[in-house]
Design a binder for these strands. Sequence first.
DNA 1: CTGACATCCTGACGGC
DNA 2: TGCCGTCAGGATGTCA
Length: 266
Amino acid sequence: MPELPEVETIANGVDRRVRGDRIVKAWFSHYREPFKTPPAAMAETLPGLRISRVRRVGKHIVIDLAAKKQLLVHLGMTGRLLVAAPEVPVPAHTHAILQLGSGRELRFVDPRRFGRLELLEGAAFAGPGSEPLTIGIDEFVALFRGRKLAIKAALLHQSLLHGVGNIYADESLFRAKIRPTRAAGRLNRERLGRLQKALRTVLEAAIRAGGSSVSDYVDADGEAGFFQIQHRVYGREGLPCRVCGTPIRRIVLGGRGTHFCPRCQT
DNA sequence: CTGACATCCTGACGGC
DNA sequence: TGCCGTCAGGATGTCA
């Protein structure tokens, strides 16, 4: 489940490998998804364009191209963006192959097709919400003002903060000692301040943890799973809280599995 | 507008 | 062992 740290790490890894390279040819699968831009239009436009940079915005990978064009990649649940030599076998569920001037290929693989590919022309992509790593406390507090939905659901709302997914929402709420079901608009500034700091801390720790293993995701066949920092609550239902020993509880909130310590988080 | 919920999709996993 | 049902969730669309 790629969230901000995984997307950041993958974008950086791909950037190092393809920056400055030129797209020679573009191939796409015949499925309707994961394409937001018709594949025929992308196959027409992309060849000849140089890749100036690959970066992350929210959970999107932005491939900056010449002529103010941008290829947007969203990995969804199961998407992978791989850099491979042509002789490396093409994995099942490959939906895009960009042949590069260097001889390498940039491949997009996505079994469940929850991911998205989109070609933008003109305006720089800014993402749907605010950046969790750089947002200030005042803006952070303002995001949730007056909102009645649960803070966990609010954290997942990409038009508020983009890049936060289910795992780091749970992990940051645990570190901030906030119950996921609390109404977002009823949390005071002090608690929201803790949440903002916890969110940034856990995301940055995950980015650091991912730095060393990016090759497995970008260069290899993508068989390896995503790296993880040690989770304190996510996926630990029934196991003792690492702080107080109380069994971690799991509920469904906003249709998503939600994990918390009933004693530490209030 | 806000918020709740269904939908898409395949692979992993557990039970029998 | 092997089959089958269930579950996972990011973003979007629909509805109240």
